[in-house]
Computed example of a mutant assay.
Amino acid sequence: MALDEAPASSSPRRAAPSAGLLLTNEFGLIVLILLFGAGFAALAGGFLSPFNLFTLGRTVAVSIVIGLSMMAVIATGGLNLAVGAIGVCAAMASGYAIEVLGMPWPLGVVAGLAVGAALGWVNGWMVVRTGLHSFIITLATMSIFFGAMIFLTRAESYRALPAAFTTIGRAKIGGVVSPLLLVTLVVMLALVYLYRFTALGREMLAAGARPEAAELSGIRVDRIFILCHVLSGFLAAVAAVMMVARNGAAIPSMAGQLGQDWLLPAFLGPVLGGTLLNGGKVSVLGTALGALLVALLTNGLLLLQLGEFWIQSFLGLLLLLAVLIDKSRRSFLARRNLA
C-alpha cells in the first residue's frame, strides 16, 4: 500500500499512535525503571522499605529540577556548566539572608531564587555579547561564581535556619512521600505550560532549532538566549533551596567542588529523556524519568554495596550511551526531514 493511500479499515489508524508511543524515550525509560526497580527489589535488601523510598523520593525531587535547569539551556543548543555553582551561590544567599540578615524564611528563599536568576542572566548576557559558545562562558563562570561565594562567606555554613523551613524537607506525606516531590511537580507543570501553551516557550524552541530562521521571523534570538539562561539559573536556585530544606543547612560543599557534583545528573536527565543536544526539542516528562532512572540506579547500586567509583563509572558510560543515541536520533530525523 502506498504511504499516501487511506487504509481499508480504521484499525491501523487506531494502532498507529500506540506504535509511536512504543518508540518514544519516555516509554523506554518507564520500561527500564520498572525492570531495574524489580531487580533491586529482589536483590537489594531494604530497597522497598518506607525509609529508603522516602530517601529516594527526596533525592529524585532535587535531581529532576537539576535536570530541568540544564534542559532550559540545552533547548537553545547551549550548555550551562555553572548550574551547580549557581545553585550553591543561591543556597548560600538564602542562608545568609535568613540567618545573618534576619529575613523571614520565605523572603530568604525569594532572595536566593533572585540570585540564581541574576547569575543566569550574567551567563546569558556574556554569551550574547561575546559570541562565544555557552560551554566556554559557563566553564569560566563556574569557577568565578564559586570562588566569589567562598570569598564572601568565608566557606562558613548557615545552620541556624527556622524549623518551619527545614521541616519541609524532612516531613513525610503518608509516611513515604516527601513534600519536595510536590514542589518538583509544580515546577514540571509550569514548564509544560511554558513550552506548550505560551508564545515565549515556542520562541525558545524555535530559537534553539533554527536561530537564523527564528531571527528572520521576528524573534529576538539574543533576548531568548538570555531568558533561557535566566530560567536555568532560577531552576538551579530552586533545586538548591530544596537541598537546603532537605539538609537543614546551607553548606558551601553541598554540590561538590565548584558545583561539579551536579553536572552528571544535570546532563543525564535531559539527554536520556530525549532533549536534543543541538536544541529545538525538550521533554519535561522525559527529563524527569531520566533523572528518576539515574537516582534509582545510584540508590540500588549503593544498597548492593558497590563502590562509589564503580557507580560513577557506570553513570559516565550511561551518559556516553545517551549521547550516542541522541546523535543517532538526530541523524534519523534529518534523513526523514523531521528534525
Rank of each mutant, 00 (worst) to 15 (best):
M1N: 08
L3K: 12
P12R: 14
R13A: 04
P17Y: 04
L22I: 06
L23C: 00
L23M: 03
T24C: 08
I30H: 01
V31D: 03
V31P: 00
I33D: 04
L35G: 01
L35C: 04
F36P: 00
F40L: 12
A41M: 11
A41Y: 05
L43G: 02
F51N: 06
R58H: 03
I64G: 03
L68F: 06
S69T: 04
S69K: 03
M70R: 07
M71S: 07
N80C: 03
V83R: 08
A85T: 12
I86A: 12
G87A: 10
V88P: 11
C89A: 15
C89W: 08
C89R: 06
A90P: 09
S94E: 13
S94D: 06
S94L: 14
G95C: 12
A97D: 01
V100Y: 13
L101E: 03
P104T: 08
G112D: 05
G112W: 11
A118I: 11
A118H: 06
V127H: 07
T130I: 07
T130Y: 10
L132P: 02
H133Q: 15
S134P: 07
S134D: 10
S134K: 06
F135T: 10
M142Q: 11
I144Q: 10
F145P: 02
F145A: 07
L152Y: 15
L152N: 10
R154F: 04
A155C: 05
A155V: 05
R159T: 14
A160K: 15
A160N: 15
T166N: 03
I168K: 09
R170P: 02
A171Q: 13
A171H: 11
I173E: 09
I173C: 06
V176K: 13
V177K: 11
L185P: 03
V186L: 15
L189G: 04
A190T: 05
Y195H: 10
F197I: 05
G201T: 12
G201P: 09
E203A: 15
E203S: 15
L205M: 14
L205P: 14
R210Y: 07
R210Q: 14
A213P: 02
R220Q: 15
I226R: 15
I226Q: 14
L227M: 13
L227D: 02
H229S: 10
H229K: 07
V230P: 10
S232T: 00
G233F: 05
F234Q: 04
V238L: 09
A239W: 06
A239Q: 01
M243T: 06
N247I: 09
A249H: 03
I251F: 09
Q257T: 13
G259W: 12
Q260Y: 06
D261V: 03
P265M: 05
P265D: 04
P265Q: 07
G269F: 07
P270I: 01
G274R: 01
L277Q: 13
N278V: 14
N278E: 14
G280R: 10
K281E: 14
S283R: 02
A288I: 00
L292D: 00
N299L: 08
L304E: 09
G307S: 11
W310A: 12
F314Y: 08
L320H: 01
L324V: 12
I325Y: 10
S328N: 09
S328G: 07
S328I: 11
S331M: 00
R335H: 13
R336E: 06
N337P: 01
A339H: 15
